[in-house]
Design a protein around this nucleic acid. Structure first.
Lengths: 418, 418
DNA sequence: TGTTTTATTTCGGCGTCCAAAAAAATGTTG
DNA sequence: CAACATTTTTTTGGACGCCGAAATAAAACA
């Protein structure tokens, strides 16, 4: 059931509205916030001054080379998020190590750290501790005390259970059910979540352009594996257990090629890097795929071969395109998203894949539904996952922390007394 | 972006909370409403008295053979929804006619009407008028004036666009894009929506048991066709255009059997009544399916044959089970629902289908995801779609009408003056 | 009849929003 | 350059809706 409404809800909602307007449009004058939120100028003044008193917002440095040059009337005083209001840590776990970033309250990255460890054979008991140590080292390097970090978020390939903070299954690990978040929470006392990496790309896209990616959008990642982040009604969908959208492990054909997950016929077993190489090499479909990271050069060689028209190479891309296309057709039949975004290193070879992909979609879905979906390729840049993870962490901080304001303080005081 | 919060939102939200508590639990005393909603007794008194003044609620007939017999203290005064607060009309369109029902504010059906018209060849221009006339006839029969009807809702097989109120594509019609809702709205001045029939079953299930069906649930309908209603986070999902969840027309195998939609390999082309008959009769996969309604007796004969172990018949159910199973496996990979409900006349033969369906799911989806989903068969009863359509209409009335209260009146007055 | 118990209502206070008026800060103009 | 115009921001006072506490209501119990 919905939440009851009282003045507490009103305050939280409207504070959040203000903060989100700033996240979306950057520094804003009070009157502009009013336009974005629908609140009256009087209310904006009052809410903003409270947020400033709480240290969450601050008046922006006076600099308004606003296109309109000098207009008449009292000049705008812009307000922005106080970068020191909170810090967040983002961690991206790959098969060959992890990448960390510390960001300020505005999402600007302050410090980075990379660590090379063979995650695949890591001790599942100790792995959470390892992540915690890495975060601690990052903070030491940045000279930011732990208590200034409001949240940590971890992105990982595969199935992550956001409720328990564990990695249920990931190609980056030999073992299943690796608990990660609780070690960070216990040792560093920083709230921590674990999520799927493709979902984090989706979070990033939402921040980039809400009007474009705010409806119902599927973000398909092609590369070392095949993943998907699902945006439903403007929100990234994490299923009931926090583990959904395993597009890569959706079956394409029964009894098809063997996938890293152990099943046969998954989309990933057609379209991931290792699958393309397997097709091209002429190996059997049932050849057990390697779990080692595929070097980028190998893929570049394969792409070049396909572009030269070598049959075994271009055939691999044709198979990948068909599997992806039918997978997307099935997705469209179920959810009818308004947009499907293709991203990841695999899109480098998009022109090899696309014709087969389009044909498969045409064969696989009723015209009426197909017409309503726009398919778009967004070339990946290295930081997309880290950026998205930061965005997600900040949105959580906005909601759980910044929106609450005074009442939280009061309640805490009461709790401390008791 | 979210809605700004003000006293208007608070009132709407809390009024709705009260009404929903009553819809879910039947007549309640004020104090019980407080427990359900989290509102204080003082607020309940105030909100309830306004709702009573508005004619939306009423004190219930004193009758409390409550198990607790006679307890001490002031007795509870139960409150219930005023059945006369509003009426709704539900219309179910089938291939061979339509079924109508008039319900009161509590959802009790007052009057029914059935009309036999061959919808398939109906004039697309005139069809909306026909529906409007049927509704008018229903109201005449019930002696309820049009203005007492707050909403009409129409359920139809296939793709319905709830935004434009048209039937985009349905096996019940030869023609595409048949506008239905606007004729009702224009002629009778009753707000009207069109929706997919399986979605309406999902609506009905939500009303029946929110704790069971309130999360992320897929409701698969098997019968004349194969449909699906999708509940995501407790709400029936209608995609961006209001036309989603065409599970029946999700592809199972590329270049598979011909479907009524014109594509090949749809799940429906394996598992709908006509598909089962086609398999069993040994006709070619590419045999164009008939659009005539399949008589129930034909299906009973087929089921009996399969139960006797006749190979061509049981083989048909095996094929259906495999297609449904892989379809569900793909759905699970995308959404990881906590429950899948199978319903519709097709479930009569469930024991013939189930083993193949289960095996397909095992082959088609990673263990981790499969373990989190419960598959359940709910035998259909004739009124499920009509009931669900009424529930949906009433929920819309609650939200758009009952929740608003005094302010709406005031605004209307202002508009009338202007 | 008085006491106990439980449900409901009344009353006063509080928090938040808003409209209107006032104040602030700048540009424009004669 | 002083008065006016224009735009943003703040202040003020009123409204609305929630809540806690106290009062009232309606029964059972003793």
């Amino acid at each position: 059931m919905r939440e009851k409404a009282d003045s507490d809800l009103v305050r939280r909602q409207n504070r959040l509205l203000l903060i989100e307007a700033l996240r979306q449009h950057g520094p804003l004058a009070r009157i502009e916030m009013g336009r974005h939120t629908g609140l009256s100028p009087a209310s904006i003044t009052s809410i903003a001054s409270q947020l400033i008193a709480d240290g969450i917002l601050q008046e922006a440095d006076q600099q308004q080379p606003h296109e309109g040059a000098h207009r008449r009337g009292r000049p705008l005083t812009q307000i922005d998020i106080n970068p020191k209001a909170a810090h967040v840590v983002a961690v991206k776990i790959s098969i060959d190590g992890m990448e960390l970033a510390l960001a300020d309250g505005r999402g600007a990255i302050l410090t980075r750290r990379t660590s090379r460890t063979a995650t695949y054979d890591a001790d599942p008991q100790a792995f959470g501790q390892l992540v915690a140590s890495e975060i601690a080292a990052l903070l030491t390097k940045a000279r930011i005390p732990t208590r200034r970090v409001a949240r940590a978020a971890i992105a990982v390939q595969g199935v992550a259970d956001s409720q328990t903070g564990t990695v249920v299954w990931s190609p980056a690990f030999r073992t299943r059910n690796i608990s990660v978040a609780s070690a960070v929470e216990d040792r560093l006392n920083i709230p921590c979540t674990v999520a799927n990496d493709a979902n984090m790309i989706a979070e990033g896209l939402i921040s980039t352009d809400r009007s474009r990616y705010g409806g119902t959008v599927a973000v398909v990642f092609m590369g070392y594996g095949v993943g998907m982040g699902l945006i439903i009604n403007g929100q990234v969908y994490h299923g009931p257990t926090g583990a959904a959208a395993e597009f890569g492990h959706m079956n394409h054909l029964p009894r098809g090629p063997l996938c890293r997950c152990g099943r046969r016929g998954c989309v990933e077993a057609y379209a991931a890097d290792y699958s393309l190489l397997r097709w091209a090499s002429g190996e059997a479909e049932t050849q057990v795929p390697s779990f080692a990271a595929v070097p980028e050069e190998d893929m570049l060689v394969l792409e070049a071969a396909a572009r030269r028209g070598e049959a075994h190479a271009s055939g691999a891309y044709a198979k990948a395109g068909e599997a992806l296309g039918f997978g997307m057709a099935r997705l469209i039949a179920i959810l009818s998203p308004s947009r499907i975004v293709l991203t990841g290193p695999g899109t480098r070879a998009m022109e090899l894949i696309e014709p087969h992909l389009r044909r498969a979609i045409e064969d696989g879905v009723v015209d009426e539904l197909r017409r309503n979906v726009e398919i778009e390729v967004v070339p990946i840049h290295t930081d997309m996952i880290i950026k998205g993870t930061i965005d997600r962490a900040l949105r959580q901080v906005d909601r759980e922390f910044f929106a609450h304001g005074p009442l939280v303080k009061r309640n805490r005081e009461l709790e401390n007394i008791a």
